[in-house]
Simulated scan of single mutants.
Amino acid sequence: MPFEQCQSVASLMSGFNKSWGIAGGWAIDLFIGKETREHKDIEIAIFRKDQLYFKNFLIGWEYKKVVKGEFHTWENEILELPVHEIHALNKDNGSEVEILLNETKGDYWVFRRDTRISCPLNLVWSYSQTGIPYLNPEIVLLYKAKNTREKDHQDFLATKDTLENEKRKWLLKALEIHEPKHKWIQLLC
């Protein structure tokens, strides 16, 4: 079944009544509508303000926060920047999911690496043909622009020509602000 991992996460999150979406490479594939490459894991994005709600939603799971590249048990403290990554493990069945905390300010999503970059909250998520929410590709690609790996470049190439004009312009402007020498800029012009 295509997008089996995404469907599984969507089922898991079906009762979560806060904003969330698939992130990373899977978000790119959901946008394109087909699996373009192999994925080793699955990430979801939520807003930082919803972190404890999320933790209480997946009750009984084991949580680790990533601090300076190392895993530490996440108790019930509010995680602040620079901590933005959580790993959750269901000890009963071995399911794992990576949670990426996203910043907001009022009615805007804010890029944690450069707060000059933002977009209205209603432009952060889209839905696949089967109703799975995902982080919009221009935001995913902005995150992938730092320390770009080959798989990130593949995701960019698979996406760039299918981005709507406004999303393409937004990504171009964001890259010019955050990574002004990035090779993707010329490919977007």
Rank of each mutant, 00 (worst) to 15 (best):
Lys40Tyr: 10
Glu138Trp: 03
Asp114Leu: 13
Ala88Cys: 08
Leu101Val: 13
Ile46Lys: 03
Tyr53Glu: 14
Ile132Cys: 04
Lys91Ala: 15
Arg113Cys: 06
Ala88Arg: 01
Val124Lys: 05
Gln129Gly: 10
Asp50His: 14
Arg37Asn: 01
Tyr143Cys: 09
Arg112Ile: 14
Lys146Thr: 14
Ala145Thr: 08
Gly131Cys: 03
Glu96Asn: 06
Val110His: 01
Ser128Ile: 02
Asp107Thr: 09
Glu85Pro: 00
Leu142Gly: 07
Lys146Val: 11
Ile78Ala: 12
Asp92Ser: 12
Lys65Gly: 11
Arg112Met: 09
Pro120Ser: 08
His87Lys: 15
Arg37Asp: 00
Ile132Tyr: 02
Lys105Val: 00
Phe71Ile: 01
Lys55Tyr: 03
Trp61Asn: 05
Ala45Phe: 02
Trp61Glu: 06
Val66Gln: 07
Ile139Pro: 10
Lys40Gly: 09
Glu85Phe: 11
Ile78Phe: 13
Phe71Arg: 11
Trp61Lys: 01
Glu80Ala: 09
Ala145Leu: 05
Leu135Ser: 06
Ile132Asp: 00
Glu80Asp: 09
Gln129Trp: 01
Ala145Tyr: 07
Tyr53Arg: 04
Trp125Arg: 02
Ala88Gly: 15
Ile78Met: 13
Tyr108Phe: 13
Glu138Ala: 11
Lys68Cys: 05
Thr115Ser: 14
Tyr63Ser: 11
Ile99Ala: 06
Ile86Cys: 10
Arg113Glu: 15
Lys146Phe: 15
Lys64Cys: 05
Phe47Glu: 09
Ile59Ala: 12
Gln129Glu: 14
Phe47Pro: 02
Trp125His: 04
Glu43His: 08
Asn102Leu: 13
Asn76Gln: 14
Thr73Trp: 01
Asn93Gly: 07
Asn102Trp: 09
Asp41Leu: 06
Gly131Met: 01
Glu96Gly: 05
Leu141His: 02
Leu123Arg: 15
Leu100Glu: 04
Tyr143Val: 03
Thr73Asn: 10
Asp50Met: 03
Ile78Asp: 05
Ala88Ser: 15
